[in-house]
Design a binder for these strands. Sequence first.
DNA 1: CTGAAAGCGCTAACAG
DNA 2: CTGTTAGCGCTTTCAG
Lengths: 346, 346
Amino acid sequence: MSILKKKVLSIIDIARQLGISQSTVSFILNGKAKERRISDATTQRVLKFVEEVGYKPNLLARSFRTGKTNIIGLMVESIANPFFANLARLIEENAYKNGYKILYCSTENDSAKARELIHMFKDRHVDGYIIIPTEGIRDDVNKLAAGGASVILFDRCFEGDAIDYVVLDNFNSTYNATKHLIDQGYKHIGFVSISSLQSQMQQRLAGYEKALDDHSLQHYVKEVGFYLDTNTVVDYIVDFILRKKKLDAVIFATNYLGVSGLKAIKKAGLSIPDNLAVVCYDDLELFELHTPRITSIAQPIQEMSEQLINILLDKLASKNSINHKVTLPGKLIIRESSPKIARRKK
Amino acid sequence: MSILKKKVLSIIDIARQLGISQSTVSFILNGKAKERRISDATTQRVLKFVEEVGYKPNLLARSFRTGKTNIIGLMVESIANPFFANLARLIEENAYKNGYKILYCSTENDSAKARELIHMFKDRHVDGYIIIPTEGIRDDVNKLAAGGASVILFDRCFEGDAIDYVVLDNFNSTYNATKHLIDQGYKHIGFVSISSLQSQMQQRLAGYEKALDDHSLQHYVKEVGFYLDTNTVVDYIVDFILRKKKLDAVIFATNYLGVSGLKAIKKAGLSIPDNLAVVCYDDLELFELHTPRITSIAQPIQEMSEQLINILLDKLASKNSINHKVTLPGKLIIRESSPKIARRKK
DNA sequence: CTGAAAGCGCTAACAG
DNA sequence: CTGTTAGCGCTTTCAG
């Protein structure tokens, strides 16, 4: 053994050096000493030795043997989106606390890519899946779960399927936000969304429409494609708000649409809230620091992350746990972008 | 074999079913058919069969055997920080393109935690390490690299050590930003930073000081602790800008300090740029959408991520590659928060 | 050109 | 109370 080559010991070396068998060592190391009724003396001797030589079990061998990796696959729309990045941070914290690590990937809302990534996770034997699904992977996700995998959806779900999820109460959150604008006196409220069949988008739209219908107000909906680059989206929004001359308020259905919307309103030469009241989804720091501060629909991201991990750990621990379908309320944070219309000068 | 239980085949099953040996199958599957001069007929037969039955090699077994995981460990300060989240997105893209997956973790600038995470990565046999180091893990990182691991630092580095890195030219970026303010006519330029010995912070401070010294101007430095919560930081900054009455401009040395700074300036009842010009680090969307738009020092994040991955892949491919120390220039994006002082009304 | 076989380090069933 | 041992599925050396 050269000086440089720090021989990495295996369980068998330990067993040999202590003159006992590997299984004894293995059981002790896995906390099954009591269960296997191994003597305290032996247990202490092994623990002490392991400590001294700094032995670390080979996790690759263990994973290979057990099929468990202690890795959770996290599939988000994009890790660059502040909402998902913040979620990732919280998920990470809770996961690590419980001995799980996170492998992440971004789908960019591309189903082919999402499908591939699910297989990648499967190939890598991740223990659990946290998935922000795209429209097109419903079947794949169902198949995955049906095959016994522990999977939980976030942000959006497939209604009627058996898969667990944690989502926002998108309908009521949007209903309340719309209602708030109506209460403030706005009568021509626009809704800018992406053209998508994803549940959260559908629910947000439905909440908006219901609130307007309840007050016999007209709908003004603009849907843009998800794949458009920011500049194009901004131009579409500029066009929308300039063409719909009556518009006195707009709700942006996602955080990035909100950001593009703010750019568009600036570009169109309009001012908030004098020409247009604004409500955005997700309470980004940007919305709070904007002038004027933007009224936002905040998601309870801390609680969401905890529920996600807790449910997933629960499923991991006992395969039988079912029906964890969690819908959490959003919180409308009212700021200066949506004042009473009476105070506005047109 | 029950209907539900989709038997997952192994290489040995394939060999048996085709009446050949596992090694032949293994070689073919690993693209070594030519090298091993295996007949085309056999090769095609195996490939076709594998395709038909949808065989997937057990990655756990392969990793166990080879010691390679095709996983890169990414250790950032916090995945929730937009700068690192954006980096993570780009890193992910490049890594996946090359067959590598990413395990991420956040240090929150805690060296004990960072140390633990390095060991975790090591225990998990990640193939390569991308590390945004904390002050205190210099030795650990050096030991890791000395042990033959492929590691590359980002954002900050340890001068004089042999470890590769990709960092911003923090000195000149900050020098130029300070020079810009001086050129615009500002004479009392503050610098808000965190109290830290990290190279990037030291360099930023040095660049600021050099620019002031070159023009015989006074330094106004405020350093806040990294661990303080946002509100406390805001209060410290409020105190700083109110106490230093002469201050006519401030540079914030990190993106989050910039965000806190904007809050502080608002809270102090001052306006940008009339009372105070502002320059921030990192070109966040928030800075561009702020009113007024904030002059920022942008890091070439796209190129940084590419260099990071390329260098790491290079090291992974050939252990001999050394001395990849990359320093990239920042770009000063001049906006309305730092106009010529002549036009200002005090 | 192909096959046999030796492990990699660990877990756990089984045998004392 | 402890030891023996059979794999997990794959890679790769060595022998035909």
